[in-house]
Design a binder for these strands. Structure first.
Lengths: 200, 200
DNA sequence: TACCGCACTGTTAGTGACTAACAATAAGGG
DNA sequence: CCCTTATTGTTAGTCACTAACAGTGCGGTA
């Protein structure tokens, strides 16, 4: 069989991956992103440097890896096509932030702070938004069959994501005390007009 | 004297810098970004690799270096404070694009295509927008004294820049045939509402 | 239970981006 | 003409990242 594969193997793999990332973020926080080499992280995690690279293709991925990205694209594609794009995308972002903020907290915050303060990480993080934007437009499918519509959707999506990023920065600056979904809603409102996306 | 410095020295420096960048972009287009090493570029430009690094701190800068960035921030700060932020920023972006498109063309297009297709360059390019956003907010000065206003301005600015980036991508895809300022205006309209940016 | 395939890991050697430190050259100002 | 200094070249080194090969243990199979 090819399906229904390993359980113990997958567990081990996921565990070492988690361990590597935890030690990486810890060292980055302690010494700064440039102050900790991949070899340091490997040693701290008790694995070989090569193993680190097999789990995280680049050093940046040690901070950036995160699965909730594509979730947003699906969420948008699932929303009814009636409302304007910025509202649909905005609502999806706020909702996904709600589920996101429900999870961990300190670890996410530490990673986010690293992403904001380290230029290389910040750049990659913003590029992920670009990729996500493409996914959003692709997820619209037939709705964006017309190139002009696709272009408008891309513009709206990237604008929404950028506004959300501003909220993330603010959230990190406030040490996670403020409500993230609310903050995102405020950022969207500031960019697109009062009360446009969402309410309540 | 420290001021009113060199003329010949500055000319030589600017010339070698331009030469390095021209050869770099040419080689990147020919062989791809990863296909041309900094040593290759140095050899092509007839300088030592170290000289390349002194003019362009990173390999990415060989494509990204561009002075029209800060121009936008000044342009926005110069606009009257009456209208809403997205409109002011949008107008400034359209205007700066107008002056930008008046200059060269093929070289700019080649660089832009590299920035879009190469993940590392695309990431850095987007990060430049982040830096520019900060500059825009700082340029508002007293207007953004209130943290909440500054936050809203940041959200609006980043959203505008993201929309502009979408226009740049489209422009590059159209091989520069369409009118860039017009395309940016369309992207802003798609994101922020029909007609000229914003209302209410 | 014994066997075999494959996922995971470690080791080694290498490339390429980037830095630090020192020496040589040439432009600018007095 | 002399002194300062900006610019460049050279060397040696660090670090992120890759390719290739070998060892080990899990997973299914006979």
């Amino acid at each position: 069989m090819r399906e229904r594969h390993s359980t113990l193997r997958e567990q081990r793999r996921a565990e070492t991956q988690r361990m590597i990332q935890v030690h990486a973020v810890r060292l980055f926080v302690e010494r700064g992103y440039d102050g900790a080499t991949v070899n340091d992280i490997a040693e701290a995690a008790g694995v070989s440097p090569m193993t680190v690279y097999r789990h995280f293709p680049t050093k940046e991925d040690l901070v950036l890896v995160d699965q909730n990205a594509l979730l947003v694209a699906e969420q948008i594609a699932a929303t009814p096509a009636g409302q304007p794009l910025v509202r649909r995308i905005g609502n999806a972002l706020v909702d996904s932030a709600r589920t996101l903020a429900a999870g961990d907290d300190r670890f996410l915050l530490a990673r986010l702070r690293l992403m904001i303060s380290t230029p290389a990480l910040r750049a990659r993080h913003l590029d992920n938004h670009y990729v996500l934007q493409q996914a959003i437009v692709d997820g619209l499918g037939d709705e964006a069959a017309d190139p002009d519509v696709a272009f408008q959707a891309a513009a709206a999506a990237s604008a929404c994501l950028a506004a959300m990023h501003t909220a993330l920065v603010r959230w990190a600056k406030d040490d996670g005390r403020t409500d993230l979904p609310d903050l995102i809603a405020k950022a969207l409102a500031a960019a697109f007009g009062d009360g446009t996306p969402r309410r309540g």
